[in-house]
């Protein structure tokens, strides 16, 4: 896939963790490109708070690591067996020492626990008035996003305005999933029968990758998502396009044949398409052409992949609930032409 992240997103690692870069380069990984799904690349207030906390804890861990492993290495070298050395003194304990090394870790933990509690309460707040509300509905294996105030319903690609607080309400249509776009912050499980919340404010224009983080069945690996954080005007423009009705198809065109095929092969049984159908089992396809990916963020949205996908979904995505409808090649081409028109 060739899209979305330009060179400006190359700061894979946040400011205070530049030291990681040589490490990653040594592993040959950083040189391969940016890390669009990295948790070390915070792009929201929520992710930033976590990142600062983790950095703190990380350095405490490094300190203890150096202390313990250093001591161990020293002991290994200093007290290795030597021929003819006297039998060691049988020490059984030392009360003061033992009290000291009980208190020391306890003290370090206080330095970790206090900012931890602070961050817990700071990041689990109620959403402020005026926050953009988005309902996230997880399905096996794709994401549905509903913007109730805007009347927009889309799938897999979440569009958010930069600088505005967003309140995500997460529910599941089937099993437990977990919504995770590391750049936006920590994950939150999506549980049937419950509504979970995430409140966060994306702070820079960027395209972030994410995916389901709770094992949810055969295609758990294929339940991916994208977050397009856009400047307010670009976001408004996107909303405008999504609010428009379905594109019309020219009479006698291939797309029109495709529209009939869409009805004939039962697509309408599962997918919403403009005013033609209102089914909600699969993703809303009214503006499919405006999306970059299909099939749960798995493939780029182009004719080749669409054709392959519709020809045999379970072969492309194990366990896919969308069945193979055995669409003959001619009708398939018409269907693709139609779907490509639906922008």
């Amino acid at each position: 896939m060739t899209e979305c992240w330009d060179s400006s997103t190359f700061d894979a690692v946040s400011r205070d963790r530049r030291w990681l870069l040589p490490l990653l380069c040594a592993a040959g990984a950083a040189c391969g490109g940016p890390f669009p799904q990295s948790s070390l690349r915070p792009r929201s207030d929520f992710a930033g708070a976590i990142d600062r906390l983790f950095t703190d804890i990380f350095w405490w861990a490094v300190l203890v690591f150096i202390l313990v492993e250093g001591l161990l290495l020293f002991i290994i070298v200093r007290y290795r067996y030597r021929e003819g050395a006297p039998t060691p003194k049988p020490t059984h304990g030392h009360t003061l020492l033992e009290i000291a090394w009980t208190l020391a870790p306890a003290l370090i933990l206080v330095f970790i626990a206090v900012p931890t509690m602070r961050t817990i309460f700071a990041t689990q707040t109620d959403s402020p008035a005026g926050a953009l509300r988005v309902e996230v509905v997880a399905h096996q294996w794709w994401w549905e996003y509903r913007y109730p105030e805007l009347g927009v319903v889309t799938a897999n690609e979440l569009h958010l305005p930069a600088g505005r607080t967003v309140a995500l309400a997460l529910t599941s249509a089937d099993v437990i999933h977990s919504f995770w776009a590391p750049g936006l912050g920590g994950k939150r499980d999506v549980i049937p029968g419950r509504t979970n919340r995430l409140v966060l404010r994306p702070d820079s224009v960027d395209t972030l990758l994410g995916q389901c983080a709770e094992f949810c069945g055969a295609s758990h690996a294929n339940m991916r998502l994208r977050v397009m954080v856009e400047a307010e005007p670009a976001f408004q423009a996107w909303v405008g396009r999504q609010q428009a009705g379905a594109a019309s198809v020219a009479k006698g065109s291939l797309a029109e044949q495709g529209q009939q095929a869409f009805r004939r092969y039962g697509c309408v049984g599962c997918h919403t398409m403009g005013t033609m159908s209102t089914a909600i089992i699969g993703p809303n396809l009214t503006h499919l052409g405006s999306r970059m990916t299909i099939a749960g963020g798995l493939f780029p949205n182009d004719s080749v992949h669409l054709t392959r996908w519709i020809a045999d979904p379970p072969a492309e995505k194990p366990g896919s609930i969308m069945p193979n409808m055995h669409v003959p090649a001619g009708d398939l081409a018409a269907l693709i032409a139609y779907l490509r028109t639906m922008r």
């Binding site: 804890i57 861990a61 690591f65 931890t116 977990s178």
Partner: peptide, 30 residues
């Protein structure tokens, strides 16, 4: 046995990082 001390220490320290719920939200299930 010495390897146990060296490696278990690392496991314990990474354990402390996800004893912190906000950090754990980025780490759990990864």
């Amino acid at each position: 046995a010495i390897g146990f001390i060296a490696l278990f220490t690392i496991g314990g320290l990474s354990g402390v990082t996800h004893a912190s719920p906000p950090a754990d939200l980025q780490q759990t299930d990864t």
